[in-house]
Amino acid sequence: MKNLLTVTNLTKAFDETGPVVDGINFEVREDEIFALLGPSGCGKTTSLRLIAGFERADRGSVAIEGKVLESPEDHMAPQERGIGFVFQDYALFPHLSVIENVAFGLTDIPKHKRNVYAEEVLCRTGMGDYQQRSPNELSGGQQQRVALARAIAPKPKLVLLDEPFSNLDALLRETTRKEVRSILKKAGMSALLVTHDQEEALSFADRIAVMNEGKIEQIGTPEEVYYHPKTKFVAQFLGRTNLFHADATGGSEVSTSLGLMSLNCNACGKVLCSIRPEHLTLEEPAGQPPEEVGTVVAREFKGHDITYHVELNDEKYLVHTDNRIIFEPGDAVVIKPLESAVILEGGN
């Protein structure tokens, strides 16, 4: 698939404390939804602003279809980049109607045709019946769709989404997320989402770049970054996980306090491993040595599944099971791996 956006060694510092964005590299492909995921202060919003043209880069470059938009020597104005932007607060003009908001940026279309085209885009986003309303007469989800319609109406090559669902309640956030993804896919548009919400990135994006302290630690599909994290930060940021050290002897298995466990690759020496709670299960002891028998110290019933906290050899493990596997605090249990453990870079 052809690359649309190419970000190369992009770097930005605002003072002498060091770069906020520190030499990041990634590409967004045609018809792809890409997410920059990370905690507050990791540099993801600054990266988005550099791509949009709201900030100047110290080093590196931003290019679309090979044309450089941003570098220390080049700076194309935001309105000339062919990029749509959906702000966190939607930034709709309160004094304009819905259709006037969408038509506002259609400067390349003859004036007498702008409302006709704006109406067409509003219908595609499910807002055709609301075109004469003002923004303050709309719900948060409706404002979100109007903001998206305004962003995609000029047919940009790329749409940037800055935490666009964070102001919505949990149920509306989920439904709006699905609607926006469907709209972007039907329009055949590429999008770059910035978010700190792991579930949002995993469910919305085709690929994810996980950021930490100005750097990208891993890029991959949602399945790749979740099931095969490269670093301790990625493993912990993308969900609950169990971390443990082990001494590998060169093969793809390692002896642990949980017994013999397979690894995702061959390894030698002291390694740091991660295994997700849902990749473990619990069984009643059946003749295992005492050092392999743990104790349930707590459980969290969640309806469709249960999270157990198990203590084993002074270590605590999290285990997710379905609701048919029932143990009580104080029960003796054996933890059984269902999948391989993942070796993390860094080792400590």
Rank of each mutant, 00 (worst) to 15 (best):
R150Q: 03
R150P: 00
A151D: 09
A151M: 10
A151E: 12
I152H: 14
I152P: 15
I152D: 06
A153S: 02
A153I: 01
P154M: 10
P154V: 06
P154R: 13
K155L: 15
K155E: 15
K157W: 06
K157A: 15
K157I: 10
K157S: 13
K157L: 12
L158M: 01
L158Q: 00
L158G: 00
L158V: 06
L158N: 01
V159N: 02
L161M: 13
E163G: 07
E163P: 08
P164I: 10
F165D: 08
F165E: 04
F165I: 09
S166T: 11
S166D: 05
N167E: 05
N167R: 13
N167T: 10
N167C: 05
N167Q: 11
L168A: 04
L168F: 08
L168I: 06
D169M: 06
L171I: 08
L171M: 08
L171N: 15
L172Y: 08
R173Q: 04
R173L: 07
R173W: 02
E174Q: 13
E174A: 13
T175L: 12
T175C: 07
T176S: 13
R177Y: 01
K178S: 14
K178T: 10
E179H: 05
E179Y: 04
V180T: 04
V180N: 01
V180H: 01
R181D: 04
R181W: 01
S182P: 00
S182D: 14
I183L: 12
I183S: 09
I183A: 11
I183D: 07
L184I: 13
